[in-house]
């Protein structure tokens, strides 16, 4: 079979709604784009464990403490599932983690912002996990079987994350005046990174078309952002939180939300390593891998240091 015929087969399969599995023929670009995508997703889960994990020792009360441990644990679990999904495309996990640590593979910008208050944990759990659920539910319908399977499980667990995030927000916003102030302050800071979560507007995105046709990215950045706004803005207003985008409005006819664009220059700055927390997060990740290396070496005979006589 010629490559053109194979490509036609491949595209017809996706058009029929059939999934692509690891052994299938696939265009090199499909493979490389998927690896990049899943690897970045896995990186994000792993790096996302850091800002929330730092609050575990400080969590107020049994319920919050145990729920936060369980949540961060799930995130590490999601990284595990996603790296495994990416490995089915032929890239070993140690290579991917190496690339994360040396800064050559990206992760979500949101984890390069500080979580300096307890209310930040509420916002990450509610706004960011909510955005992740929107994104992952859509990506689940994508064409690559192992990624979809991992995402089904992940989305199920994210529902618990969203609930604990929302519960935290409601507890704080209905709490003491200090709690309410902390909640609003954190919300105002997280609004803009949340607006950037789904990426630049579609008109700036260059290769969305083929990614959509191949079922790698079933919906565009703007479409995903719009779904999030529909779900979250009414709830934000109901809770009495003040949205820092004073120009935010809903189009009466189309029902679409119009937002003020966040600072996309900042977005690209953070992506390229110059965000408020990039250096610290990566330094911590490197430290972790250095601290754990003795254990991995010990159980891997060919990497063990030579035995003393």
């Amino acid at each position: 079979m010629t490559d053109e015929a194979r490509l036609a087969d491949f595209e017809a399969r996706i058009a029929r709604g059939e999934k692509i599995e690891p052994g299938d023929w696939m265009p090199e670009r499909y493979r490389s784009q998927l690896i990049r995508l899943i690897q970045q997703h896995a990186n994000s889960e792993l790096m996302g464990a850091l800002p929330e994990g730092q609050w575990i020792p400080y969590a107020p009360g049994f319920k919050r403490k145990m729920a936060l441990i369980a949540k961060v644990q799930d995130e590490v679990g999601h990284a595990q599932l996603l790296y495994r999904a990416a490995e089915t495309l032929g890239k070993p996990r140690h290579e991917m983690i190496e690339e994360l640590i040396n800064g050559s593979s990206k992760y979500s910008n949101v984890f390069n912002y500080p979580c300096d208050t307890w209310a930040d944990i509420a916002m990450v759990g509610w706004l960011i996990d909510g955005a992740a659920i929107v994104n992952q539910t859509i990506m689940q319908t994508g064409s690559y079987g192992p990624y979809g399977r991992a995402l089904r499980r992940i989305t199920y667990e994210e529902a618990f994350h969203l609930k604990q995030g929302y519960d935290l927000v409601v507890t704080l916003i209905t709490g003491t005046s200090a709690q309410r102030a902390m909640c609003q302050e954190a919300f105002s800071r997280w609004w803009w990174p949340t607006m950037m979560f789904f990426g630049p507007p579609d008109k700036q995105s260059v290769h969305t078309e083929v990614l959509q046709r191949w079922g790698i990215k079933p919906k565009t950045n703007d479409e995903q952002r719009q779904i999030w706004l529909q779900k979250f803005v009414p709830k934000i207003l109901e809770l009495g939180l003040e949205i820092p985008d004073t120009a935010l409005r809903r189009d009466a006819e189309s029902g679409e939300w119009h937002i003020t664009q966040p600072d996309w220059n900042e977005f690209f700055r953070v992506i390229n390593g110059d965000g408020p927390m990039n250096r610290e997060r990566l330094a911590l990740r490197r430290l972790i891998y250095d601290e754990g290396s003795w254990l991995r070496r010990a159980l891997e005979p060919h990497l063990a240091l030579p035995k003393a006589a």
Binding site: G53, I69, V72, Q80
Partner: peptide, 8 residues
Amino acid sequence: TGLGPILE
């Protein structure tokens, strides 16, 4: 949590 030597 989140800082372990191996994901698993």
